[in-house]
Design a protein around this nucleic acid. Sequence first.
DNA 1: AACCCTCGCAACCGCGCAGAG
DNA 2: TCTCTGCGCGGTTGCGAGGGT
Length: 230
Amino acid sequence: MGRSPCCEKAHTNKGAWTREEDERLAAHVRAHGEGCWRSLPSAAGLLRCGKSCRLRWINYLRPDLKRGNFTRDEDDLIVKLHSLLGNKWSLIAARLPGRTDNEIKNYWNTHIRRKLLGRGIDPVTHRPVVATTTVSFADPDAPPKPPRLILSSPPPPTPLQPVKEEESKPPRCPDLNLDLCISLPFQQQEDALPPPRAHVKTEQGGGLCFSSNFLGLRAGMLDFRSLPMK
DNA sequence: AACCCTCGCAACCGCGCAGAG
DNA sequence: TCTCTGCGCGGTTGCGAGGGT
């Protein structure tokens, strides 16, 4: 038996929101604040599911939303954060004021993903991809298979997961240096004391430290301690 | 002009997590 | 400690707009 539905679906509207619904929702949130989404629809006189109201408010009605095209800086930041965090859109959105996780997720899937692929970069691993062609000797008349994309290196561990030591196995790509230790240019190192760091708590209670300069952020801009970790 | 296809975005769905009782 | 409930997140879907044939 599955969990009970979050609302009585027979009595709720679905699909695109009307202007009147938007106004009711916005007025109610402005008056009572966010939260209690389950009871909000009836309180606001809306025939909508609480989840739907929350989504509408967060992704569309919130007054601090930026909307409009993403800037080049935002673009770069999203790519860098994604390489670090993976598909943690809410965490990425938390670093981009005025942008929502849904918006970033859509932008990633429609624009950035394609752009990276066009540059020959795998959007999942952020590593270069190499096109190869498989040739079959068994049937010379068989049509050639389409080019296949393979990774030039094994995929990295899932973001934010502790790296497991491979015991005494030689690396598959010995020419690839995966040590992501990034340091500041000499002049900047002198200016940044102590170096800004982001601290991420792991499941084991340990921590991963990233220099926020790796993300191209200003000192102190990145502080994962303030972010909820799932 | 009509049809088809692709793209982009808003919205939905299902699951996991956290807090309360 | 267990169960229930609500919230939040990530993946997926549906639909309208725009372009191509």
